[in-house]
Amino acid sequence: MSKTIYLIVYKSPLFPAHWALWAPSAADANVGKRIHAEGDAAAGFRLSFDRNYDIREESRKHEVLAVGDVRADLLIDTAGNGVNSADSEPQDAVETVAARVPPPSPSLVSAAERARGTRVEIKNCQSWLTEVVSALHDDGILDNNAVEMIKTAPKN
């Protein structure tokens, strides 16, 4: 048996969209687990597993896109007490792979801080999630279609 994992794209007209993986629970397709790196390029990011996340309560404009199917035993529902909570302790194989990929550290620096002529690569939740999907593919959890899908996902 398999479960579908999705990409949530929180749209923004001015800034890069926030990306998160979404795994609905078997009991309720609107409640599940959100895996993402939250923060910003100036301060850095931190890993978050949001449990019992109810997508119906999300007020930000967003789009949900299927990434791929994973074996059900690799993506465990975390029922808990039914209340939305967040932590960074992996509880299944998908979360373990996500935890192996370090969230981006601060990458946005002032012009005064960087050496003249050096190019700064800005890392964000999109670059992190791209690495997570690649790692899930490398571990045989997601297929190549997931890697291709994430490359063409909306950026804003």
Rank of each mutant, 00 (worst) to 15 (best):
A72P: 12
T118P: 01
V94W: 08
T152Q: 07
V132K: 08
L65D: 02
N30T: 08
S110C: 02
A93I: 11
G44V: 09
I55V: 14
S127Q: 04
V132N: 09
A111Y: 02
V94L: 15
E95Q: 15
D69W: 07
K61E: 13
A41W: 05
S25N: 12
F45T: 00
T78N: 10
R116W: 02
M149D: 02
D87M: 06
S25T: 01
P90L: 08
E63I: 10
D87N: 15
T130C: 05
I8R: 05
A93C: 06
D73T: 11
D139Y: 02
S2D: 15
L74F: 15
H18E: 10
S107Q: 01
K61I: 12
S88G: 07
W22E: 00
L108R: 10
T118I: 08
R100N: 11
L14C: 05
K155C: 01
A146N: 04
T130P: 04
W19Q: 01
R34M: 14
T4R: 09
W128F: 04
K11M: 06
A153H: 08
F49N: 03
L108G: 00
N156V: 11
G32A: 13
D40Q: 14
D50E: 15
R100G: 13
D40K: 12
A43V: 03
C125L: 03
S88W: 14
A41R: 08
I55K: 03
D40F: 05
A26M: 11
I150V: 14
S48M: 12
Y10F: 13
S127Y: 02
G117F: 10
D40R: 01
I150R: 00
V147Y: 00
A41E: 10
S134P: 03
G39I: 10
P104Q: 05
D138Y: 06
S2Y: 10
S85E: 08
R46F: 04
N156L: 08
